[in-house]
Structure formats: structure tokens, C-alpha cells
Simulated scan of single mutants.
Amino acid sequence: MRTYPVRVEARLEEPLNRGLWIVKWFLAIPHYIVLGFLWIAFGVLTVIAFFAILFTGRYPRALFDFNLGVLRWTWRVAYYSYGALGTDRYPPFTLGPAPGYPATLDIDYPEHLSRGLVLIKWWLLAIPHYLIVSLFTSGSAISWGSDLPDGGGVLYTLDWGGLIGLLVLIAALCLLFTGRYPRGVFDLVLGMNRWALRVVAYATLMTDAYPPFRLEQGGHEIPRPDEPPSYPRTPRCEMAPPPSS
């Protein structure tokens, strides 16, 4: 069994405050400011990593760890605020994994990356995913110079609007009037976020594994078999050989 090398998971922390979501934009301002600077660094380091991969076939480990930390931080803030509203626990100010936080993101470090793919995967090969993810977001899922989810950036950023924004708004209204986050809405929001973040990781050169075209809903990754399952063959009726004389 295996999972895609970009793993996005989260758990819904209930009960959630009915009205806290109204002011989360204000509470998250310190994170927005820090993420703005972090994404400038992310963009610069991604360009450096591009040339490193092109000439050596390797993504420098220190650069990879930093950029992974930026994606982790971004996902935690998005999950707390308007990318999901899945927790009222304030996000930690750290680039590290923060395993105790209810939203996690991890990417397997690639020992080797294709020198040829680095030239085309971030624009040509990813176009089908850009078209799909743009429906989940506000139409600028991955672009130059747009805003981050709950932050700002320079290179390859996400803007959680579109279907994600609509579903999160529905969840917010349900919280306000019923105090509950509909589980079906949560599962769908997580599936869309997972798809979008996989595409971001692929487009920013952190993996050569092409993102799958499937909406994996729910808070946890589902391991997939390495090969299609094998089924027992129907036994054939064979004549026994005649006894030798």
C-alpha cells in the first residue's frame, strides 16, 4: 500500500465556537504578515532550486525543508481561518511539523528529480490540474504575484475562494445557527484543499509524482495498492492424462 508523496491531513475539532469565525481574519493578521515574507523567500528559493535540479538532479535539502515549512504554516493558517474553519486552535508560529496541531502536511524528500521535467512540469504538464483547481479556488490557484490563502506571496500561490470559499461559507452559517460543522461539507472541503496543495507541491518542483485526478475526501489520506488487486482465476477443467501402459 502507498500514498501520494504529498500528504495533507486534518481532523475536525468539535465543538467549534459559533461566532469566532467572524473575527478570525483579524486574529490571523500576525500570521498573514509573517507568511507574506515567508512566501517571498519561498519564491526566491524555488528559483534557486530550479537551477539546482536542472544541473544536479537534486533539490537541496535545506531549501526543501524551508519550503515545506512554508507550505505547512500556510496550510495550518488556512485550516484555522477561511480555507476550512476546521479548528479554533490558534496556529503555531513555526516552520516545523507541529504534529499536535489538527492540520498537517508532509512531503517525502525526493532523492532524485528529473532534469528534463523541471523545464515543463510547472507550466505545461500541470495545465489540466490548474483548470480543475481553479474551480475549487477563485480562479488563481497557482499564479505569479497573487495572494496566498490567508497571506501574500510572489510565486505560485493559492487563493481560497471558488467552491472552497462557498462551502466554507455554508459551514460558517451552519456553525452560527446550529453550532455544528456538516461532516459532508468538511470532507469535501478537505478533498479540494488536498488536491490544490498537491498541485502546488508539484508545480513548485518538490516532487516528480504527477498529482492524481481524484478527489480524496475526508481528513485522512487513503493508502492505495501499488498494483490493481488480483482476482483468483476460474479453475479450468482439464482431462487427466491416460495411464501409461
Rank of each mutant, 00 (worst) to 15 (best):
S114T: 10
G116R: 15
G116A: 15
L119M: 14
W122V: 01
W123S: 15
W123C: 12
A126T: 14
P128L: 13
H129D: 11
H129P: 05
H129R: 05
L135W: 08
F136L: 15
G139Y: 03
A141D: 03
A141K: 00
I142G: 03
W144R: 11
W144Q: 09
G145Y: 07
D147C: 09
G151W: 03
G153F: 00
V154M: 08
L155D: 00
L155A: 06
L155P: 02
Y156K: 05
T157E: 06
L158K: 02
W160K: 05
W160R: 01
L163P: 04
I164D: 02
I164H: 02
L166P: 00
L167E: 05
L167W: 02
L167T: 05
L167F: 09
L167R: 04
I170Q: 09
L173S: 07
L173M: 08
C174Q: 06
L176Q: 05
R180F: 04
P182I: 07
P182Y: 06
R183E: 15
G184Q: 14
F186M: 03
D187H: 05
V189D: 00
M192P: 02
R194M: 02
R194P: 03
W195S: 03
V199L: 14
V199H: 00
A203C: 11
A203P: 00
T204P: 01
M206S: 05
D208P: 13
